[in-house]
Design a protein around this nucleic acid. Structure first.
Length: 309
DNA sequence: TTTGGATGTAAAC
DNA sequence: TTTACCTCCAAAC
């Protein structure tokens, strides 16, 4: 699954390419026919993300609310003027980058620049929603939530979410302070609180493990025992880490000094993480064996040497 | 060809 | 705490 950085990339992509355009909305798969009909023919006015939730705001006060869940993804393409043909969402391989190419993608004809755009290609697989503008298209498949929402319904979703490290337009210090307050109230282990979207929105299993390692925090540490300083530091690191993911389209949490690859390039897959999916291997820092445990149904990775209480 | 995960969540027990 | 959702891909038969 796409963690918060992917959803913010999606919001940016929709803003860049589709906001201001009148869209045709359909459901080739057939599971969203009624919702698609409500939105079909309206202009897209906004695209915003909070945590892992995506809201596409159409004229007339209706939004398309999407949560990709574990395996949802959006694919984009269009004619030669379309920017940002790509695939953003559930990666098929660990560490996969979310950009295919920067320009033309197969839109029907392929005999050079003079060919007229024939519209989106026939849908491949189970396309829940297809959005199409004059020059491009976006396909959604596999989402856990795909619904038409009114403004009050959008507000209700936002109201149950904690602060988002990638949210812009928030007062600089306040979101971190809010995160610290939410941690302070709970004796639940920090490894569980980081995955709780009402405590902090946008963290998933990769960032959870990696942020805990970077903070050298024992995953079992109760939220209430972190204290304000460590909570604010954890928030600040989340802002940095997710910010890099937003920029790169890939989760890379290791310091470049750990990359066995020329400077200036993103690291090889195996160099991108400290502990995520590295159980049984030696810790990059202390050489102790990285451990794996089942934590509330999700896999938790940590180093017992670096992350001691 | 079948199986089993995967960067997730909510509903059912 | 477990199951169901729902899609694709890679690894195991």
């Amino acid at each position: 699954m796409p963690e918060g950085h992917s959803i913010h990339r999606l919001a940016r992509q929709f803003s860049d390419v589709f906001v201001g355009e009148r869209l045709t909305v359909s459901s080739p798969q057939g599971r969203f026919v009624e919702g698609a009909a409500l939105l079909d023919g309206r202009a897209l006015e906004s695209a915003r993300a909070h945590g892992k939730q995506l809201f596409l705001g159409f004229e007339g006060g209706l939004s398309l609310h999407v949560h990709l869940g574990l395996y949802g993804a959006w694919d984009f393409g269009g004619d030669s003027t379309f920017r940002g043909a790509s695939s953003i969402g559930a990666p098929r391989r660990v560490g996969e980058q979310e950009i295919a190419d920067g320009g033309m993608s197969d839109g029907g004809t392929d005999d050079g620049g003079e060919a007229a755009y024939a519209g989106p290609p026939p849908p491949v697989g189970a396309v829940r929603v297809r959005l199409a503008s004059e020059h491009g298209w976006a396909d959604l498949r596999g989402a856990t939530v795909c619904a038409v929402a009114t403004d009050p319904e959008v507000e209700a979703v936002l109201a149950r979410l904690g602060p988002d490290p990638l949210a812009t337009a928030q007062p600089s210090q306040e979101p971190g302070e809010e995160f610290a307050r939410r941690l302070a109230r709970r004796r639940t282990p920090i490894c569980r609180l980081l995955m709780d979207q009402s405590v902090i929105a946008g963290i998933g299993n990769v960032y959870r493990a990696e942020l805990l390692f970077r903070a050298r925090l024992d995953p079992a540490t109760p939220g209430s025992s972190l204290g304000r300083e460590r909570a604010l530091a954890l928030w600040a690191d989340a802002v940095v880490a997710l910010g890099q993911g937003l920029r790169d389209g890939r989760i890379v949490t290791t310091d470049p000094s750990f990359w066995s690859f020329p400077a200036g390039e993103l690291p090889l897959l195996r160099d991108a993480h400290y502990v995520y999916r590295r159980h049984g291997e030696p810790c990059r820092v202390c050489t102790r064996t990285v451990l794996l445990a089942d934590e509330a149904g999700r896999k938790l990775y940590w180093c017992p040497g670096c992350q001691a209480l």
